[in-house]
Amino acid sequence: MPKVTASHNYYVYIITNKNKTVLYIGVTNNLKERIFYHSNPEPHSKSFSHKYKCKYLIYFEHFLEIEDAIKREKQLKKWSRAKKERLINLKNPDWTFLNDTV
């Protein structure tokens, strides 16, 4: 009997702070919920995104398999700032905050 694999929705995303000086890359299966979490962190949170006030979505990619999303996240995290900026500019050249569009 062939193996059945379920496909789901996974997202690799990039958020930034208000001045667009810090980039945070993450992976999630619920982009809307994760963006809400970044915008409303736990009190006294010590997370990177909270520390640097990263809560503005500027880029995301959709995947059906978690393995592919994790692989892409790791790839992007290794990139230079300049290379990440070029990627963002391809889909969002004005770096418009996308929080309300997801």
Results as ranks from 00 to 15, higher is better:
S80W: 09
T28K: 02
L87D: 00
T21A: 08
V27G: 00
V12T: 03
L87N: 00
R86D: 14
E85K: 10
K55F: 06
I70D: 07
A69S: 12
P41L: 08
I88D: 01
K32Y: 07
E67Q: 14
L57V: 06
L31V: 05
Y37H: 05
Y56I: 00
H50E: 11
Y52F: 15
W79C: 09
T101A: 03
W79K: 15
R81A: 09
L90E: 10
H8P: 00
T16N: 05
H8A: 08
K77W: 08
N92E: 04
I70C: 07
Y24I: 06
E42N: 06
I14T: 04
S80D: 14
K51N: 10
V102H: 05
K3T: 13
L90M: 07
E33Y: 10
Y10G: 00
K84T: 07
D94R: 09
I88K: 01
E73I: 03
L98S: 01
D68S: 13
I25H: 06
M1F: 12
L57G: 05
F63K: 01
W95D: 01
S39Y: 03
P93F: 05
M1E: 08
R81E: 15
Y13I: 03
Y11W: 14
P43A: 11
L64N: 14
H44Y: 13
D100I: 09
L23G: 01
K32A: 11
I58D: 02
K3P: 03
N19Q: 14
K20N: 13
L98F: 08
N92Q: 04
E65L: 15
K74Y: 11
K78P: 04
R81T: 14
H50G: 01
P2Q: 02
T5A: 03
K51F: 09
S49Q: 11
P2M: 10
N99G: 04
I70H: 06
K46P: 02
S47E: 12
L98E: 02
N92T: 07
T16R: 05
S39E: 10
D68E: 15
Y24D: 03
V12I: 08
F60C: 03
I88M: 01
N17L: 11
N99E: 06
N99Q: 04
K71R: 10
F97W: 11
Y13N: 01
F63W: 07
Y56C: 03
V102C: 03
E42V: 14
F48S: 10
E73W: 07
R34L: 05
P2V: 10
T5F: 13
E65R: 14
H38T: 02
Y56N: 10
K77Y: 09
